[in-house]
């Protein structure tokens, strides 16, 4: 009787496992097949790309699409270099400094909110939390007018400078993380005569490297994929970021699907590679960000 029960339990688990796998595999295919389709299309000749029926494997591997996207000056010779490559450079140029400096100011503010006593602390933190709820569309047009009045449109200023002051969500997350660091450590350092800034760099930062990397990656991801800001503020082809350059090429190559798909692959690949190598930080950064709102 008990053996039978055990047996049936094991069989039940097996059956459940099989159904679990079926579910997981189907969903994995739903995610992956579209990527496979853009990948094979990018390697096809344009005439094969528009062949019916769809070929699941390119008859001849063709790199013309990649060549077009990587080496063409889509602006018609105005900038003299590949729009997409320059776009990639512009993205790194605008996103990396903002990420690093913004992360530093966010972390310093989070440290102050978590570990230092100062007047107005709770009010300031409350304002910061509330600011996370402000819909971006409300501030979009006035910001545009301000920048335009200051002659700052068509420069990197609007997409770089706001982030330098720190991000509310990042501060919120890091504050939670820093709060878990024991006060004893900080008191001991104080007795040793370490300054408050010194405590941040010598105690807080070494104990939170993983959290800082996770937040930095998240910030970089958002900057890398940002579309609306660069689209609004950057008009000259030599200032386009990668996403804008991609959008521009898509419009230009239009029905040359192998080139369009090659552009997609090129735009996706750097982030996908970073994701595969730093997956832990991506998932950690997401899974622990402000669940209690």
């Amino acid at each position: 009787m008990t053996i039978d029960k055990k047996k049936s339990k094991i069989i039940n688990k097996r059956v459940a496992d099989v159904f679990t796998y079926i579910g997981l595999v189907i969903y994995a295919l739903v995610i992956l097949v579209p990527f496979y389709i853009i990948l094979v299309t990018s390697f096809k000749t344009n005439s094969e790309a528009v062949t019916i029926p769809f070929t699941w494997f390119p008859q001849t591997f063709n790199f013309k699409g990649y060549h077009t996207v990587l080496f063409d000056d889509a602006s018609g010779g105005a900038i003299g270099v590949s729009t997409v490559l320059l776009g990639f450079g512009n993205t790194l140029l605008t996103v990396l400094p903002t990420t690093l400096i913004g992360l530093l100011t966010s972390a310093l503010a989070a440290y102050a909110f978590a570990k230092l006593r100062f007047p107005g602390k709770n009010i300031m933190f409350g304002i910061l939390l509330a600011s996370m709820m402000i819909p971006g569309i409300v501030t979009l047009m006035p910001s545009y007018l301000i920048y335009d009045t200051l002659y700052l449109t068509n420069t990197f200023f609007p997409i770089m400078v706001p982030g330098l002051f720190g991000g509310a969500a990042c501060i919120f997350f890091l504050r939670q993380y820093f709060s878990a660091i024991p006060d004893d450590l900080i008191e001991a350092a104080k007795v040793d005569g370490v300054s408050y800034i010194g405590i941040f760099f010598k105690i807080i930062v070494p104990l939170s490297v993983a959290a800082l990397i996770a937040q930095g990656i998240l910030w970089f991801l958002n900057g890398y994929n940002d579309y609306l800001g660069p689209y609004l503020y950057l008009w000259d082809a030599d200032k386009y970021t990668l996403q804008i350059a991609l959008m521009f090429s898509v419009g230009l190559y239009d029905t040359d699907w192998s080139a369009v798909m090659a552009g997609c692959v090129i735009a996706l690949l750097p982030m996908l590679i970073l994701y595969l190598f730093a997956q832990r930080y991506f998932i950690e950064g997401i899974a622990t960000t402000g669940l209690k709102i």
């Binding site: 995610i31 992956l32 579209p34 990527f35 389709i37 853009i38 991801l221 890398y224 994929n225 579309y227 996403q243 991609l246 959008m247 898509v250 369009v260 798909m261 552009g263 997609c264 735009a267 996706l268 982030m271 996908l272 994701y275 991506f282 998932i283 997401i286």
Partner: peptide, 14 residues
């Protein structure tokens, strides 16, 4: 998790 790290422009074009 892959769709989360992909840019809206690329995914939309896809």
């Amino acid at each position: 998790f892959i769709p989360f790290v992909c840019s809206v422009v690329a995914v939309s074009t896809m």
